[in-house]
Amino acid sequence: MENSISSFLVLNYLNIFKNVDIESLEVLGLPDSELQSAINELIKKGFARKINDTITISELGEREIENCRRILLENCDRKDEFLEYCRMFEEINKDFKNLITRWQIKEIDGELIPNDHSDPEYDMAILEGLAEIHEKTIKLLDKMSEIFPFLKGYISRFEKAFSLLMSGNLGYMADPDKQSYHTIWFELHETLLKMSGMRRIE
């Protein structure tokens, strides 16, 4: 891999989701031509396979992305700072997962029931909690992407999900079939775990 940022981004995405529709790669925000040439490069080098409209990462691709990440981190003169940011993200992650859980289920008289979103105060408190988490996360991503610019794309993706959610599209909180806040978060979390070599704490 020529280490182009586009190829890296696509391979990282494939590594996280294993096989994806070509269309879904649009979330990476790359210009069409760049995305296409990144895909072509990955296929040509045997890092990915294309069957119909689905792209799958190959064993070689898996090794390549791990190698790229390792080299990136080892050659990084701000490695410790980055790892500290990853730990900070883990802290925010705990709050975020609690918040999403409260968004989905409510505890009433010791019983867990699905949140029917009929209580404006309850939902509002959660959305305000998300606004705080969003602010912290964007600040953290700003710092992280100074070190690794490929992370910058997450900022605009979070901003988009946040703004859709805050303009009444409630599915953009956690729906797995949308680029919801949780969908992006889950992906970023995995990316950071893989970059830092940290273990997932569930």
Binding site: K97, I105, P176, F186, E202
Partner: peptide
């Protein structure tokens, strides 16, 4: 799952 709590990503996705 063998690991993960009520707030884990698996739980979030399953509930959604």
């Amino acid at each position: 799952t063998s690991r993960g709590g009520m707030t884990s990503h698996a739980a979030v996705v399953a509930r959604a």
